[in-house]
C-alpha cells in the first residue's frame, strides 16, 4: 500500500508537472501575443513560416509576429530568426 510508495519516491519519477509548466509557459506567451491583435495574426504567422520554409528550413518558433496598436496607426512587426549556417553557406 502506501508503504510501497516509498520505493516510487526514491526513484526519479516521470515528472508530468514539469511538462505542464513547460507547455503552459509557451501557451500563455502565445495567448498574450495574440491577445491584443487582430484574428488573422496566427494564420499570418503560419503562412509566413510556410513561405520562408520554401527557402530556409527554420523552426516554428523562429517567426515572431507582433502587433502594436497605437493612436491613429498600428504596426506589425515580423521577426524572423535564421540559422547561422544558412547565411554562411550563402556567403561562400
Amino acid at each position: 500500500m502506501r508503504f510501497f510508495d516509498w520505493f516510487r519516491l526514491s526513484r526519479r519519477r516521470d515528472d508530468s508537472a514539469d511538462k505542464a509548466r513547460e507547455r503552459l509557459t509557451v501557451l500563455v506567451a502565445l495567448d498574450r501575443q495574440g491577445g491584443g491583435g487582430p484574428d488573422f495574426l496566427p494564420l499570418l504567422q503560419k503562412e509566413l513560416l510556410e513561405v520562408i520554409r520554401k527557402y530556409v528550413e527554420i523552426d516554428q518558433d523562429k517567426v515572431n509576429v507582433d502587433f502594436q496598436s497605437g493612436t491613429g496607426f498600428s504596426t506589425l512587426e515580423v521577426n524572423v530568426e535564421l540559422p547561422n549556417r544558412v547565411l554562411e553557406a550563402r556567403a561562400s
Binding site: R8, L9, R13, D14, D15, S16, A17, D18, A20, R21, L24, T25, V28
Partner: peptide
Amino acid sequence: VQRGEMLKLDDVLEI
C-alpha cells in the same frame, strides 16, 4: 505536488 504530479505554487506564480 511532491510526487511531481501537480503544478506547484512557484510554477503558477512564475506563469
